[in-house]
């Protein structure tokens, strides 16, 4: 998983820093011109969000610069924190305790270990097959059958979303793409950039234009106009980044479209779980955004789809 430094990497770094600087300036201008209490609140939230973006970008870029191992550790940690937020919100009972211990301290590290040693045949089935069989088995031993199916399903779901799906992000670094050796980090960058920028523009357009809600019961902030604007912006920006990927411009456009759509549904799905539990955010770890899962929600589902499409069409 060695990473090659070249001109494009430097361009990307400068681009990201430029983008963040511009958004910071926008944030501060908003605060300056805010007159009402509500506007000020919005500006403060915006500044907090952008500050968190600086931190997240810094951590992400540092992890990429270490080569593969840094990203592996970073995403392993993200999985751990996300799973912890997920399980905290999911009512589990005392009979699940031992099974959960396995989930957090054995299954999760093993999954990332398999990604680390590039054992595709194992990491792509470990959780859907082996963990799927192991968890109910471990729960049965505890002898508690109350709401058994529901409990087992919730733990399995948490594992799939928070560990299995997210682990496909560092797995992108293990793909062998012709004429692209050592540059896979840019593919990971592409995925995360497109998904997150789509989120950002859906938020921005949702604030500015549009009245019709996409799904008023689940995500009251999302408007149809915001959604379309967000997707258009993300696809445009994604397409314009074709030169950092192994794709042609048309292919880059297709990939951008697919991952923003899947990302949107990921966002809605994770929101539906929050609504059901009667909360607004999964946690408080990222200032202005909420929990890890609030930021990862769209990435969770888009990552394995992107990984498998690229693997199918572009590797040998």
């Amino acid at each position: 998983m060695n990473i090659v430094f070249d001109k494009t990497t430097v361009f990307l770094l400068v681009g990201i820093i430029g983008l963040l600087t511009i958004s910071s300036i926008i944030g501060f201008v908003h605060k300056k011109i805010a007159k009402q209490e509500k506007q000020l609140q919005f500006a403060n939230n915006l500044i907090a969000r952008i500050k968190s973006w600086w931190i997240m970008c810094f951590i992400f870029i540092c992890s990429l610069l270490t080569g593969g191992i840094g990203s592996l550790i970073l995403f392993g940690l993200i999985s751990f924190l996300a799973l912890r937020e997920f399980i905290t919100l999911t009512p589990t009972n005392r009979g699940d305790h031992r099974a959960l211990f396995w989930v957090f301290f054995i299954i999760l590290p093993l999954q990332y270990y398999f990604v680390g040693i590039k054992w595709y045949g194992m990491f792509s089935i470990f959780i859907p097959v082996y963990a799927f069989i192991f968890i109910p088995a471990r729960m049965v031993i505890s002898g508690n059958y109350e709401r058994f199916l529901e409990r087992a399903a919730k733990i399995q779901w948490g594992l799939m979303v928070c560990v299995y799906c997210i682990s496909h992000a560092p797995a992108l670094l293990t793909l062998n793409i012709p004429n692209f050796a050592g540059q896979n980090a840019k593919l990971l960058f592409f995925l995360i950039f497109v998904v997150q920028i789509s989120d950002v523009f859906q938020y921005v357009f949702g604030k500015i234009i549009g009245k019709t809600k996409v799904s008023p019961s689940i995500s009251p902030n999302k408007t149809v106009a915001g959604l379309i604007g967000g997707i258009l912006m993300a696809v445009t920006l994604g397409t314009s980044l074709w030169w950092i990927t192994p794709f042609s411009p048309i292919q880059a456009m297709g990939f951008s479209f697919v991952i923003t759509i899947v990302g949107f549904f990921g966002d809605l799905t994770m929101s539906a779980i929050k609504r059901d539990r009667g909360i607004k955010d999964y946690g408080t770890i990222i200032e202005g955004h909420g929990g890890i899962l609030d930021r990862m929600d769209s990435l969770c589902l888009a990552t394995p789809v992107f990984f498998h499409l690229v693997r199918y069409y572009f590797t040998y």
Partner: peptide, 8 residues
Amino acid sequence: EFLPIPIL
């Protein structure tokens, strides 16, 4: 139980 799990 004697092994803790990391719930918030």
